[in-house]
Amino acid sequence: MSERVAAGPTAIQAAFDRAKAEDRAALVIYLTATYPDTATSRACMEAAVDAGADVIEVGIPFSDPMMDGPTIQAANQHVLDAGRSVSEQLAFVADLAHLDVPRLAMTYVTIADTRGYARFADECADAGLAGVILPDLPAPEAGPWLAEADRRGLATVFLASSVSTDERLAAIAQVSSGWVYAAGLLGVTGVRSISGDVTQDLVGRIRAHTDLPVAVGIGVKDRASAAEVARYADGVIVGSAVIRAAGEGDPDGAPARVHALVSELRAGVASR
């Protein structure tokens, strides 16, 4: 097994730096691994990068995704119903090395914990991932995972919420690497629209604790909301809208639909 350091945080920082140099926010696109099928999923990832995504979050499906609304739940369930294992999904991820942007796994702590944190970190690093996001792993519980992620040079992005106390924000900033993920609303993915003032305030509060980029996700769905967030955040994260583009309609047309949406979003993050 290779013990090469993935240098994830450095690669992610570089992606945010490039966007900043172009005077825009970075665009982070979430897509569920192998959804709706392996070939279409791969083509959608390529389309997203071609249309200007700076970072890709690859969702590894979990049966009980507590933070996700109906769109991503259904995508997860679709992949699970097709019987694709986590190993197959990670093999799919490893096959995305030609994409010239950092890729992070987005999954739930149960997946990482059941595999064993050490093995999961090894597999993620070996698949060429720059980092991992576990939305149900809060900072106070993260120690054992962070030890393994650090060993393999993986970034771990933590979520912050408008209800987080300053003490918790300090802890989140301390353990996060790559960026800090500011939740754009109190709620699950893909249901409501972003709460603008509250989120802007949250981004400011996070910045008091860290020099890491701060990216906003949950509630961003189109060019206008991406442009709005790009005015105050270093990055904009879009998931459910992209999954709808990938999954609704003829699979052959999915890459073109994803390309069109991501192009719009990219224009949004550049028009701040």
Binding site: D136, P138, S164
Partner: peptide
């Protein structure tokens, strides 16, 4: 045991 929940619930649990 422990508390493996989204950060949004941290305030309510505290």
């Amino acid at each position: 045991g422990g508390s493996f929940v989204p950060e949004a619930l941290s305030g309510a649990l505290a």
